[in-house]
Design a protein around this nucleic acid. Structure first.
Lengths: 193, 193
DNA sequence: CGTTTGCTTGAATTCTGTCAAAGCAGGTGG
DNA sequence: CCACCTGCTTTGACAGAATTCAAGCAAACG
């Protein structure tokens, strides 16, 4: 149930049996079917969700009803609305399964306890948040300095898994483009070769 | 010298004299003249810089030699290249003073020590990083979902201090626009009224 | 087998970037 | 005190990129 999650932590530092027991006692698991929601706008985000298997997206709906994808999460990733999770404020995002998913849920309380009691957890989470921050910064930088075509090539190179598994119109939404524009960019890249 | 910095920490939790002494012993201060650099591309970022007074920008230079502003920092803000600071890798950013500045510098070593020994520091930094992450997320969301005009109005509403103190072509760079486009947007907004 | 879902294409329109030039301070030295 | 920089902003004309709206096509699904 917690295979991949424990393996990730073990890669940082071997976990004692005591720590494993402690973590098992605080964590829960959840299955989501394709299209089911982990979080909806207006909810308070109660969990960090570690993805054991499957794929999810987080997105918001703007004033005109259009969907804007913020993040995808595949196996081994964590997805959540960190803002809502940490502050207890209402979320303005949705998190939805793109495929059937097996998740490990970390509640706010579990998170607090584990930060205190399991140093490896603390290291892992700090690393994840730092990486998330850096990835976000890089993404913003790319949006500002690269053309859409360059950004798509980048995504192909850096995140091939996502491009393969996620419908193209969602990639477009993630990139801040219309599906038509992305389709034309792909056409152009194909013609170049 | 550390007035504003200590005041910020005190707002979270009153600091003991012992903690104040400890912090003073680890922190250093630095003055920067307008246009001087705190960090240049290729350097390793050795400090978190808390701004006591003045203003700075962090930016990168792209393949075509164009400048892209990532962040501004005014009094009470922290500026750094978190990635380089935390990992020890070379930075791909520059940090430069826009006005004469008075800074509090937190070295990597000081950061480690203070995280361990001053709980209020740990709380403060965690809060800052979380806020930075959330702000970045919101900014990315705005870039994807709002028009340039809407984003500029947003900036005026949320960060009036920056718009007043920073030259307009830098605001344009921060927004990922050319100065000409921003000028036309301002014209359009003015005409609406 | 019909419906849904996703991808592609075309034409018209809007937005943004580029290049070049002119205007407008504030500051400096003569 | 004035003339002249210099840094910054504005404007115009044009080219290129992305969006919008509409239509068509193919694969997947119940």
């Amino acid at each position: 149930m917690y295979d991949l999650f424990f393996r990730k932590l073990n890669e940082l530092e071997p976990l004692s049996d005591k720590e494993l027991d402690l973590m098992s006692s605080f964590l829960t698991t959840k299955k989501l079917r394709r299209k089911q929601y982990l979080l909806q706008e207006g909810d308070i985000c109660k969990y960090l969700a570690f993805v054991e298997s499957g794929a999810l997206k987080s997105y918001s709906i703007d004033a005109k009803g259009a969907e804007h994808i913020l993040q995808f999460a595949l196996e081994g990733w964590i997805i959540s609305d960190l803002y809502s999770f940490l502050t207890g404020e209402q979320s303005s995002y949705h998190i939805q399964a793109l495929e059937d998913c097996q998740l490990v849920l970390i509640s706010q309380q579990a998170h607090e306890e584990l930060l205190q009691q399991v140093p490896t957890y603390e290291t892992y989470i700090r690393l994840q948040i730092t990486n998330a921050y850096i990835a976000l910064q890089r993404r913003l930088h790319f949006v500002q300095s690269l053309t859409a075509e360059e950004r798509y090539k980048n995504l192909l190179a850096l995140q091939p898994g996502i491009v393969q598994r996620v419908p193209q119109h969602m990639i477009a939404s993630y990139m801040g483009l219309t599906p038509e524009t992305l389709s034309r960019i792909r056409r152009k890249i194909a013609d170049q070769q």
